[in-house]
Amino acid sequence: MDGQDRRVLGSSFGSAAGAYAEHRPHYARAAVQWALQYAPGPRVLDLGAGTGKLTATLLELGMNVVAVEPDPAMLTELRRAFPDVHALSGSAEAIPLQDDSVDAVVAGNAMHWFHMDTAGPEIARVLAPTGILAGLWNVMDDRVDWVDGLAQISGSAAIGPRDTPDSWRIETADLHLPRSVAAQFGSPEQAEFPHGQRRTADSLVATLATRAGMLVMPEQQRQATLGRIRTYLATRSETADEEFTLPMLTCVLRVRRISR
Rank of each mutant, 00 (worst) to 15 (best):
M1F: 02
G3W: 05
G3R: 11
S11T: 13
S11E: 13
S11L: 06
S12R: 06
G14S: 01
S15I: 07
S15P: 05
G18T: 09
A19C: 03
A21V: 03
P25D: 11
Q33M: 12
A35P: 12
Y38T: 09
G41Q: 09
P42I: 11
G52W: 00
E60M: 07
E60G: 06
A67G: 06
D71I: 08
P72C: 11
A73Q: 15
T76I: 06
E77N: 05
R80V: 07
D84H: 15
A92I: 03
E93R: 10
P96R: 01
L97G: 00
V106P: 01
A110P: 05
H112Y: 02
W113E: 04
M116T: 14
I123V: 14
V126Q: 05
L127K: 02
G131K: 01
V139Y: 09
G155H: 04
A157T: 06
A157S: 10
I159L: 14
G160A: 02
D163P: 02
D166C: 05
W168L: 09
R169G: 06
R169P: 03
R169W: 10
E171C: 12
L177V: 07
A182P: 03
A183P: 02
F185M: 10
E192W: 09
G196K: 00
T200W: 13
A201P: 10
D202R: 00
S203E: 03
V205Q: 12
A206Q: 12
A209D: 01
V216E: 00
M217H: 04
M217F: 01
E219M: 12
Q223T: 02
A224T: 12
T225K: 07
L226F: 07
I229H: 12
R230L: 10
T231E: 15
S237W: 05
E238F: 13
A240C: 08
E243A: 12
T250R: 03
V252C: 02
L253I: 14
S259I: 02
